[in-house]
């Protein structure tokens, strides 16, 4: 059972797990709750999972994110691109309130997770972060066994009996396409895994708490091309049951895996749209310059 931020009986409170198990076609046939945000060109728009309204973030006096309004959709990969220091990571960290851990950061505006503002007073950060998981740039497995890494999240909340724990570990590792590689060394240190395996282990940790959204902050920048490829494959698989937001410096990666792309520049969300449109027909000159610059 997932912890919920809301117990309202509107469509927000539907069972996402049950929902995710349905074949994708079934899902697509569902009427979108937010039909107004559908776009033309025959593409199907999924439900909005996270919506930000006029989000501003300051570090002391530095205005890092300026009035950003964007939508993150279910079953899609949203890529955030832009030069270093443009605020895309800051924006990402606003979505699970990880910026709260930075004392000088201040946030105004709204971030709606299924319609509920996560910045409103009294939000349960624990529940929020279980729903909105995060994978970091540097793989950060805990210095403990593979098994204990995966079961770390569930065990924060409750006692998990041995058998159930075994099941969660296997399911999560399978979900992260890591099971076959580590099933014989579950009780060995996670620090001995390769970088790519460590990153997939970090994804498995999120799956173990049944995250609904996965925030990935340049998850492949510390990995070699083969490991990167495996992560990308995994992302495409995972989006069947969750929403994924990825910050990346790699334009090819953004165009390869994402459904939508947002271009950040100096804290501003310059352009946000379908990935094909952003890369092939950007409306803003700055996006055009950035995208072309990288493609030569």
């Amino acid at each position: 059972m997932q912890p919920k931020l809301t117990n309202s009986d509107c469509h927000d409170a539907r069972e996402d797990t049950e929902y995710a198990e349905q074949p994708k076609e079934d899902f697509l046939r569902r009427s979108s709750a937010d039909a107004g945000t559908r776009v033309a060109r025959g593409d199907v728009s999924h439900d909005v999972k996270i919506q930000t309204n006029d989000l501003d973030i300051y570090y002391d006096s530095c205005h890092a994110i300026k009035e950003v309004s964007a939508e993150i959709r279910e079953h899609e990969i949203t890529a955030l691109i832009g030069p270093s220091g443009c605020g895309k990571s800051t924006f990402l960290r606003a979505l699970n309130r990880m910026n709260d851990e930075i004392p000088e950061a201040r946030t105004t505006g709204q971030v709606l997770l299924e319609g509920e503002d996560i910045y409103r007073e009294g939000t349960d950060l624990v529940a929020l972060r279980r729903r909105v998981g995060q994978v970091f740039q540097q793989p950060n497995p805990f210095p403990m066994s593979v098994y204990r890494n995966v079961i770390y999240g569930p065990r924060l909340q409750r006692r998990v009996a041995r058998q159930e724990a075994d099941e969660i570990v296997e399911r999560s590792l399978r979900g992260a396409a890591l099971w076959d590689e580590v099933k014989d060394q579950l009780h060995k240190s996670a620090m001995d895994l390769s970088g790519g395996q460590q990153q997939r282990l970090c994804i498995a940790r999120c799956l173990a708490v049944e995250s609904e959204v996965l925030l990935m902050d340049e998850p492949c920048s510390a990995l070699d091309p083969t490991a990167t490829f495996r992560i990308e494959e995994l992302m495409l698989e995972l989006k069947q049951k969750m929403a994924i937001v990825i910050v990346t410096h790699n334009m090819y990666q953004a165009s390869r895996v994402s459904d939508r792309t947002g271009f950040f520049l100096l804290g501003e969300l310059v352009e946000f749209g379908r990935t094909t449109q952003i890369f092939e027909d950007p409306h803003d000159d700055r996006t055009d310059a950035y995208v072309r610059g990288r493609f030569g």
């Binding site: 699970n96 990880m98 851990e101 950060l125 624990v126 529940a127 929020l128 972060r129 279980r130 998981g133 995060q134 970091f136 950060n140 497995p141 805990f142 210095p143 770390y152 999240g153 924060l156 909340q157 970090c202 940790r205 999120c206 708490v209």
Partner: peptide, 10 residues
């Protein structure tokens, strides 16, 4: 490590 733990809802 701290952020990894916090991000899992610790």
């Amino acid at each position: 490590l701290r952020e990894g733990s916090l991000a899992l809802g610790a």
